[in-house]
């Protein structure tokens, strides 16, 4: 089960995504699904980078594994030690609004929720833990 730790900085985003997507490829995901997983994980990671460590710098731990249970898939666990923060609680944006009335935030998490099949959040001790599953 591959795991890695990265500084929670935008300049490390592509390393983090590369780490996840390499494993998804190993599990046999096709290019189309890889593109979708990339989008979901970019949005999740950018939110952590932007909001989890407002006063300090910190890191993000990522662990990937085959999904447990009957269905084949990838489960990605993302952990940070920042402020308690459940991004999954954020209300979905109104996607029927025209461009001039759109708010800036919320679209990314909405994408992640549309793409991933299971998303859970847990505050455990000092850690925010997100677990995200995409079935093959």
């Amino acid at each position: 089960m591959p795991a890695s730790t990265h500084p929670a900085k935008l300049e490390n985003l592509n390393d983090m995504l590369g780490f996840i997507l390499d494993y998804a490829r190993e599990l046999g995901f096709d290019d189309k699904k890889i593109g979708k997983i990339r989008l979901a994980m970019e949005e999740i990671l950018v939110n952590i980078i932007s909001y989890s460590y407002p006063q300090t710098t910190g890191s993000i731990d990522i662990a990937c594994s085959p999904t447990e249970g009957d269905k084949a898939g990838i489960t990605i666990e993302v952990k940070d030690l920042g402020i308690p923060f459940n991004m999954l609680d954020k209300a979905d944006p109104d996607t029927t609004l025209p461009m001039e009335e759109r708010q800036i935030g919320g679209l990314g998490i909405f994408f992640a929720k549309q793409i991933m099949d299971v998303l859970t959040y847990e505050r455990s001790g000092e850690a925010n833990i997100l677990r995200l599953t995409k079935y093959a």
Binding site: G35, L39, E43, V46, M99, E100, R102, G108, F111
Partner: peptide
């Protein structure tokens, strides 16, 4: 080949700032 929400936000920004 790829666009994320950050990219769409730039398009929204363009519309909002350049003219309704």
């Amino acid at each position: 080949t790829y666009i994320a929400s950050a990219g769409l936000r730039v398009m929204i920004f363009a519309k909002q700032r350049i003219g309704a």
